[in-house]
């Protein structure tokens, strides 16, 4: 039975569209993450003074909100992906599976 379902899903153009849409989203999210993290690390490697520079008149440096920001962005990006995947993408996947079972 499984083989038949696989065959029908394979031939369903919606499946192709679905996977490429989701993969595009995954890759965009991953690229954002890579830019944020490696941007931060390379900034430290190449320009330490910039991160040590003061934020306003206090002692807090720019590096601290940036570092905490990287942690928060990591968490937020993860949740954005999971929310969209668990609602929109899963609904589409279920619809494709249902079509192939008829």
């Amino acid at each position: 039975m499984s083989q038949e379902i696989y065959a029908r899903i394979r031939e369903n153009p919606k499946f192709q569209a679905f996977t490429s849409k989701r993969n595009r989203f995954s890759i965009i999210m991953l690229v954002i993450m890579l830019i944020v993290y490696y941007g931060y690390i390379l900034l430290i490697a190449f320009d330490k003074e910039l991160l040590a520079a003061k934020l306003g008149s206090g002692v807090t440096s720019i590096g601290i909100p940036m570092g905490l920001g990287v942690i928060l962005i990591t968490i937020i990006l993860t949740w954005i992906y999971v929310r969209r995947a668990n609602s929109e993408f899963d609904t589409e996947a279920e619809a494709i599976i249902k079509e192939s079972q008829q």
Partner: peptide, 13 residues
């Protein structure tokens, strides 16, 4: 932060 960035990779892919 370095120890955290593996998690989005696992999530997305």
């Amino acid at each position: 932060t370095g120890w955290l960035v593996g998690w989005p990779l696992i999530t997305f892919l």
